[in-house]
């Protein structure tokens, strides 16, 4: 066991997979000599050389497009988006090409590719450096979307994503990079994509969430424990396709469900989770399904007070759980 930051776990996962399989290579803006703007690829250029850690022009459509072609010809590219906010020029390559090629070619072609992108706010990044864009992609069969919350999950899931024979969008909360530290085993392990994980067992209120919000929920749960409120926390880990079985089980456990996302509320991933619960667990519900999410405004504001208003935090989570517990 080694204590690793979320960032270190991601770097290590890529390093190990590149050592394990020479088809794996990285491409993205400043991923090479600079080691990435967040330093996620630090040391990899030196170890694997410019052929396998490729600095690209500032053109996301090209980064993903090249990745799709390379993947179809048998390589295993890891494409880095500098910020998830910048993924939009590559949406066509991701949705219409990468996600569809297996179906379109009747299994003749596939696209074993990972697209990594730092997302999320709370870092004074404002509009272009704070967005949560997962909902844009979360209804594209053929695509998988993974958002780990801990260094352990990040390493195991990224390795599984690299070995996956189909495209995986891998979103990393940028505020988690250095904030979240965790024991990570030194051995070569992977975590199955598509499986949610119970991060805390509880009896009173079920919280279902993903990414950084898992930690807000854990902190809130710890405080609420003193008041006798026992919180059950399910970390989705894969937000598309969803682990329906785990969601239904967690919802039935307490009958009071709080869904949390940092994304804006309407049409978020949590809307789908709420629908699954309503569809399959209605007669176990003891309270209306509650969603805690960002306000439906265009972007994370820059002004610190307004950013705080928009951003999720343990106090908001605690308050929402308390309301449900008392209902």
């Amino acid at each position: 066991m080694t204590v690793l930051s979320y960032m270190d776990a991601i770097t290590l996962a890529m390093k190990e997979e590149m050592e394990r399989d020479e088809r794996v290579f990285i491409l993205g803006e400043d991923v090479g000599v600079k080691g990435g703007v967040f330093k996620a690829t630090q040391g990899l250029y030196e170890q694997f050389g410019e052929e396998r850690v490729i600095d690209t022009p500032l053109a996301e459509s090209a980064i993903v497009g090249v990745g799709v072609g390379a993947a179809m010809y048998g390589l295993r590219p890891i494409a880095e988006m500098q910020f998830a906010d910048f993924i939009m020029p590559a949406v066509n390559q991701i949705i219409s090409e990468a996600s569809k090629i297996r179906y379109r070619s009747d299994n003749d072609w596939s696209c074993p590719m990972v697209i990594r992108a730092p997302f999320g706010g709370g870092v004074h990044g404002a509009l272009y450096h704070s967005q949560s864009v997962e909902a844009v992609f979360a209804n594209q069969p053929g695509l998988k979307i993974v958002i780990p919350s801990t260094p352990y999950d990040a390493k195991g899931l990224l390795k599984a994503a690299i070995r996956d024979d189909d495209p995986v969008l891998f979103f990393e909360h940028k505020r988690a990079y250095r904030l979240i530290k965790d024991d990570v085993p030194d051995d070569d392990y992977t975590i199955e994509i598509g499986k949610a994980d119970v991060k805390r067992e509880g009896e009173d209120v079920t919280v279902i969430t993903y990414g950084l919000c898992v930690h807000f929920a854990l902190q809130a749960a710890e405080r609420l424990e003193k008041d006798g409120i026992d919180v059950h926390i399910l970390d989705l880990r894969t937000i598309y396709p969803l682990d329906q079985e785990a969601i239904i089980k967690a919802a039935k456990k307490t009958g009071k469900v709080l869904l949390i996302t940092e994304d804006t509320k309407e049409g978020s991933v949590m809307s789908e989770v709420a629908a699954i619960i309503a569809e399959y667990a209605l007669f176990d519900l003891d309270a209306p399904i509650k969603r805690l999410a960002g306000p439906d405004v265009p972007a994370m504001p820059y002004a610190p007070t307004m950013e705080k208003f928009f951003m999720m935090n343990p106090e908001k989570v605690e308050q929402a759980i308390r309301e449900l517990a008392e209902f």
Partner: peptide
């Protein structure tokens, strides 16, 4: 303590 407006509003789980 005297407010009982939710006394007869049953959740699906309670009803079942």
């Amino acid at each position: 303590s005297s407010e009982k407006s939710m006394k007869t509003r049953y959740s699906p789980a309670v009803g079942r």
